[in-house]
Design a protein around this nucleic acid. Structure first.
Lengths: 238, 238
DNA sequence: CGTGAACTTGAGATTTCTCAAGCGGGGTGG
DNA sequence: CCACCCCGCTTGAGAAATCTCAAGTTCACG
């Protein structure tokens, strides 16, 4: 499963066999995680990075009065606290499903990146792409309707999961509740529910029991004004 | 003015005199920019990075129908297209005022970062902090009222500008229009105008003619639910 | 003076929210 | 094995925030 990490990194630049081995060897241990487990908590100053190897997770912040904002969803191959390499954590990361994570000591990561600049480039690129995704979410929350926002998020997840080999015949696992969806998009759960019904009613998709099924991809991308360019995958959606 | 770059970088880790010199020498040329000039445009694949040395700028994306989302404001010391080092540009950067930028060839930047790992760490840190700011904007757009959102943005800008030595007696230059503010916060210009009046009415601030004056800092931070932690400045707000 | 950009105001229209209640299926203790 | 319970989903209906359209004002600048 450690190969999920190198597979992900190589979306942004090829690595030699040697480099791949070096990167995979940084993962000194793996461990199973349960659904809903906090992997990293606001205020932590981690000494390791966590790579998600199996399952899904999300990054989020909760305001004093309980309002929550989800800022990203993670899929296998993602490093979920790369920020912790240089800065403290200013948000939480929680698993969505049972899965597995790998641990990479910061010291090892720093060392490998110095020896293999291309791996450094790949890691840095993943954090730049993550920032690009944040910006796109801002466009959605600032300027798109609830309808387009939901469609856009599903498009994004499908493209990312497809690149990771996690989409089979227009279906993929996305184990979130409508409440998660609402907190990611800045909507109320009620409005999310009704808008989801509209999307379903248009025959664009189906989303229940944590499974997302795309029924009309052209229609969905149009509804979400989706253009995958910001994911910088260079046509890698196999 | 090139020292603005090293001053900014050192918010996230000290650099030796040697390293500072190496970093500053990467700037092979500077040039004046006019207000409203596009510094980088969506689709560019730059060969240089641009450091803002004087004046202010903003990053933005425009949707096909003209809706615009502003994703960041830049102040002197910021590298505004660090993303271009590894990825193409997926958004625009435009100057807000007359100013000056420095050019850093990618080749030089790569070389200096390999020779001086601490400078690499500093550059990378700036991009991580930028991502942290994106996340905080997401919290605002998703979960905060227009009133809190505006207050929060002003708090953020004041803290950042203060760290750069650009705030004098609770006053700083922030040459944006109410339309810019609206596009940054996902609001209509009309609503921004009325909300700004409320903030002014509470005696928290004054914002006209491109000058921001903070009249009640505790009140403003409370109104914006502002906590500077996400800026990761480690108490550097002099 | 004339002009244009930015700001301001009024007022009705929409989107989205909140509160409140009902439904449904899976898991669990009796 | 069944009743109960909880969580997530769904629905209704009124309320609030925010938007849009449209017009008027101000002020710097030519």
């Amino acid at each position: 499963m450690v190969s999920r990490l190198t597979a992900n990194l190589q979306l942004y630049g090829a690595l030699s066999a040697d480099e791949q081995r070096a990167v995979e060897n940084m993962v000194i241990s793996t461990r199973a995680v349960a659904a809903g487990e906090d992997l990293v908590v606001e205020g932590d100053a981690p000494t390791h990075c966590r790579v998600l190897l199996e399952g899904q997770a999300f990054r989020h912040k909760t305001l004093p009065d309980g309002r929550r904002q989800i800022m990203a969803f993670h899929i296998p191959g993602d490093v979920c606290d790369l920020q912790g390499l240089f800065l403290g954590m200013d948000h939480n990361v929680t698993s969505l499903s049972a899965g597995e994570i790998g641990l990479i000591p910061h010291a090892k990561l720093t060392e490998v990146m110095e020896v293999h600049p291309r791996s450094a480039r790949a890691f840095w690129s993943t954090s730049l792409v993550e920032a690009a995704v944040f910006r796109e979410w801002m466009v959605g929350m600032g300027r798109r309707s609830a309808y387009a926002r939901i469609a856009h998020l599903f498009c994004e997840m499908v493209v990312r999961m497809r690149a990771a080999g996690l989409v089979h015949q227009n279906r993929c696992s996305f184990p979130i509740t409508q409440q998660h969806l609402s907190d990611a998009l800045g909507l109320s759960a009620v409005h999310t529910n009704r808008t989801l019904q509209a999307l379903r009613g248009e025959g664009l998709l189906t989303f229940q029991g944590g499974e997302l099924v795309i029924m009309d991809w052209p229609g969905l991308t149009a509804a979400g004004e989706f253009d995958a360019g910001y994911l910088h995958q260079a046509g890698k959606s196999a």
